[in-house]
Computed example of a mutant assay.
Amino acid sequence: MAQRYLDLASVDPDADWSLPAWLYTDPEYHAVEIDRIILPSWQIVCHAGEIAQPGDWRTIEYLGESVVVVRGDDGEVRAFHNVCRHRAMRLVAGDAGCTRKLVCPYHAWTYELDGRLTGVPMRRDYPALDLAATGLIAVELDTWRGFVFVRLTDDGGPSVAAMMAPYDHEIAPYRFDDMRPLAPMRQRERRVNWKNVGDNYSDNLHIPVAHDGLSRLFGRSYAIEAQPYVDKMSGYLVERPSTDFWERFYQAHLPVADHLPVANQRLWLYFKLWPNMAFDIYADQIDFMQWLPLTPTTSLLRETSYALPDDRRAMKLARYANWRINRVVNAEDTKLIEQVQQGMASRSYTAGPIGRSEVCLRSFAAKIRDRIPEARLHRPPPPGWSRAPRAVGASA
Rank of each mutant, 00 (worst) to 15 (best):
A2T: 08
L6T: 14
D7I: 09
V11E: 11
D12P: 06
D12G: 08
D12S: 14
L19H: 01
L19W: 01
W22P: 00
D26Y: 04
P27H: 06
P27S: 08
Y29L: 13
H30P: 03
V32Y: 03
L39M: 14
W42D: 01
I44S: 12
H47I: 11
G49D: 02
P54Y: 01
W57L: 01
E61L: 07
G64Y: 05
V69L: 11
V70M: 01
G75A: 10
V77H: 00
R78W: 07
A88L: 14
G94I: 06
D95P: 04
G97A: 03
K101S: 11
P105E: 06
Y106S: 08
L113F: 03
R116T: 09
P121Q: 09
R124E: 15
D125C: 09
D130V: 13
L131T: 12
G135E: 02
L136F: 07
L136V: 04
E140I: 14
D142P: 06
W144A: 00
F147G: 00
T153V: 14
D155K: 09
D155T: 10
G156Q: 10
M163A: 10
M164I: 07
M164K: 07
I171Q: 07
I171C: 06
A172G: 03
D178P: 01
D178H: 09
P181W: 02
L182R: 12
L182S: 04
A183T: 05
P184Q: 02
P184A: 05
P184I: 02
M185L: 15
E189D: 14
A210L: 13
S215P: 03
R216E: 15
L217A: 10
F218H: 03
G219I: 01
A223T: 14
E225T: 10
E225P: 01
K232T: 02
M233I: 08
S234T: 14
L237A: 03
V238G: 11
E239P: 04
R240N: 12
F249K: 13
P261C: 10
V262A: 13
Q265K: 07
Q265L: 04
L267M: 15
W268K: 09
Y270K: 09
L273D: 01
N276Q: 10
F279R: 05
D287V: 09
W291S: 12
W291H: 12
L292C: 02
L294T: 10
L294Y: 05
T298G: 07
S299N: 08
T304Q: 06
A307W: 04
R312E: 06
A314Y: 09
M315N: 05
K316M: 12
A321R: 00
A321T: 02
N322S: 13
V329C: 03
N330R: 12
E338V: 11
S346F: 12
A351L: 11
P353W: 10
I354T: 12
S357L: 07
S357K: 09
C360T: 12
L361F: 06
S363Y: 03
S363N: 13
F364V: 04
K367R: 15
K367P: 00
D370W: 14
D370F: 14
E374K: 08
R379S: 13
P380I: 04
P381T: 08
P382G: 10
P382A: 15
W385F: 08
V392N: 11
S395L: 11
